[in-house]
Computed example of a mutant assay.
Amino acid sequence: MGSNELEGQTAIILGGANGVGMACAELFARADARVLVADIDAESGRRLADRLDASGQRVRFATCDVRDLDAVQALVDRCEVELGVPDVGLYATGIIKPAPFLDLTVTDFDLVMDVNLRGAVFFFQALARRLVKAGRGGSLVSISSVGGQVAGDSTHAYGTSKAGLIHLAKSMAVSLAPYGIRANSVGPGGVATAMQAHLSPEERHASLSRTPMLRLARPEEIAQVALFLASEASSYVTGQTIFADGGRLALHRTVKVPQ
């Protein structure tokens, strides 16, 4: 892919201050998009936006807690005023609250679902309504996970939310196709982000043993898949989840990890 895949387009990236979301913001800006980065982490988000804007790329930042649906709607409104009607919406917000199933609490379950799935539903709804009103097509992309396809013994809420994003891409694709709006998802395996840093050596080893490529993804590798789905390069792709997982879902058993 070239360097101007999103030329003339505007993108909102929710959860863009860190990790995969930040890599997407950097890549989308380099692809000539006008980018509104939104995140609850205001310090990191403003630092990112200032850095990219100073390099000549048109990037802005807005604080947004996805649990506040009024704030999500206001984010879409602000984007139209400051950068133009958003052509691309990327949802990269996610948290995990691990717990054995017998210890899972309503509070933690609701929090994970609110942040990982509910926020995505109504962010995409607000953006799609704006696109339909403007008579324009667009691309909606979420960051799901292999955890939405395979189960862990302590990631019940997380896995359920990520499976929801996979289905959401399908249902939005069907509903919004008449308006020229596409919806897809990216399903990463292990990614070298702060979330991985919290794993024990044993957990990291176990993860690699289920990954034929024997390494974590770099955030920018996931961002490249998101860019493909956001751009016209994927103009006939909708309702899909692309698993960028180093071969994890293809593996039946485990592979030997070098010491």
Rank of each mutant, 00 (worst) to 15 (best):
G15F: 05
Q125Y: 11
P219D: 03
V37Y: 10
H167S: 09
G94M: 03
A217M: 03
D114Q: 15
T63G: 14
C79D: 00
T93F: 05
A183D: 00
E43W: 09
H167M: 13
A29M: 05
T211Q: 01
S3M: 14
E232F: 03
P98Y: 07
E82H: 03
H198Y: 13
Q9G: 01
G15A: 10
G45N: 00
V66A: 12
A17S: 06
L14D: 01
G8R: 05
A42R: 13
A62N: 02
I222G: 00
G135H: 11
L104V: 14
K133M: 08
D70G: 13
S161W: 06
A49W: 07
C24S: 13
D41I: 10
A74E: 07
Y91Q: 04
E43T: 15
I40Y: 04
Q57E: 06
I166Y: 03
A177H: 02
Y158A: 01
S55N: 09
V174C: 07
G138A: 05
V174S: 01
A62Q: 08
F243S: 02
D65M: 10
C64F: 00
N116K: 12
V81T: 14
F124K: 04
N4A: 14
Q57Y: 08
L36H: 00
H252S: 13
E203Q: 15
M172I: 09
D68Q: 12
R30P: 02
T10K: 04
N4G: 09
R60S: 15
R210F: 13
Y179V: 03
H198F: 13
Q240G: 04
I181W: 06
L52D: 00
A99F: 11
I13M: 10
I13K: 09
F243I: 10
E220H: 04
H198Q: 15
S3E: 14
A217D: 00
D53H: 15
G94A: 04
D41K: 09
A25L: 10
Q73W: 11
I242H: 04
L216Y: 08
D108I: 05
V66L: 08
A92K: 09
G15L: 06
A194S: 15
D68R: 13
A197S: 15
L176P: 05
G16N: 11
S207V: 14
D77H: 13
T10D: 01
G147H: 09
Q259I: 11
V72D: 08
G119N: 10
Q196E: 14
A29I: 10
T193D: 09
L214I: 07
G15S: 03
F61K: 02
G16I: 11
L90D: 01
